[in-house]
């Protein structure tokens, strides 16, 4: 079993309140806040699918979808 590979980072921007927790604690600095203070994946190619953003998001706005094994 290899490392899970990111398929897509789903961010529900209408649920996001822009607290910045995901941006700050992402170990690969994948996420950023846009000009409306909503999280978006600025560098999805760097994502290691650790899911810490998904687990910590207080707005339940993030879902990390990985490639099927």
């Amino acid at each position: 079993m290899g490392k899970p590979k990111l398929k897509e980072l789903h961010i529900r921007q209408d649920w996001c309140k822009g607290c910045g927790i995901c941006v700050h604690f992402c170990p690969q600095k994948v996420l950023e806040l846009d000009d409306k203070d909503k999280a978006f994946a600025a560098r999805p190619q760097d994502c290691i699918s650790c899911r810490l953003c998904e687990l910590r998001c207080p707005d339940l706005a993030i879902e990390v979808e990985t490639e099927e094994e």
């Binding site: 607290c19 207080p58 707005d59």
Partner: peptide, 12 residues
């Protein structure tokens, strides 16, 4: 979206 403030730990 829920009624908790931005960054509130209750959502986590």
């Amino acid at each position: 979206p829920h009624m908790w403030c931005p960054g509130c730990g209750h959502g986590t």
